[in-house]
Amino acid sequence: MNAETSIEPSVAAAAAHAPHKEEAVYVYQAPVRLWHWVNAFSILALCLTGYFIGSPPPSVTGEASNSFLFGWIRAVHFVAAYILIVGFALRVYCAIVGNSHARQIFLPPVWRGRFWKELLHEVLWYAMIAKQPLKYAGHNPLATLVMHVMFVWGILFMIVTGLALYGEGTGMGSWQFDLFSSWVIPLFGQSQDVHTWHHLGMWVLICFAVVHIYAAVREDIMSRQSIISSMFSGWRTFRDGGPGDNGL
């Protein structure tokens, strides 16, 4: 239904080489897939370096001038941060100009009763009460909502608090300070609170990443559609024929 039919030649060729028995739907456009992986690796780098910013490794010995270990940890954090920020901005652009799937996690149709009904079904499926999951070309409603809250808002939260902390270093007059630190810090109380929340935000993202990866693997095995390979190829394949009749 709302799946795009425009196919890049390379992908089409690949699909032609390995013909699927099932019907396939092109879901994730190339920029969305690229973003997914860039995003995943920058978050991994941000979590690792962020953790060490909070709990530095054991002291380096020797002269201070011979080492820049903590400086590097912070530098990697900031480089990854800017990759995350630029990626997020481009991703928002994709959501606006891309296909409906590119928009999905930005605009969960929470105003629709059907969305919540199917979300409940998805919860029952995870609780192993429902026998069969529904089929979706895009994300199922539960995944849509969780990704919307955790990824869209979670990443935005980390970007805003992160830029506010960054602006403290670049100082008054820098755009980071004027656009972020100047209002974020008083909003949270003081700088220490922003650090605390930025730090807690990391753990929220880690918890979610665990669930996200688990759900992707599990769905790939147990549900009626491909999940992991879709994020590489862009194609959603269905094991029991027919495109997703419940696609939202």
């Binding site: 530095p56 490794p57 380096v60 270990l69 903590f70 400086g71």
Partner: peptide, 11 residues
């Protein structure tokens, strides 16, 4: 601060 950047901390 140079000790901070170097990663030299009082434990």
């Amino acid at each position: 601060r140079p000790h901070f950047d170097a990663g030299q901390f009082v434990e």
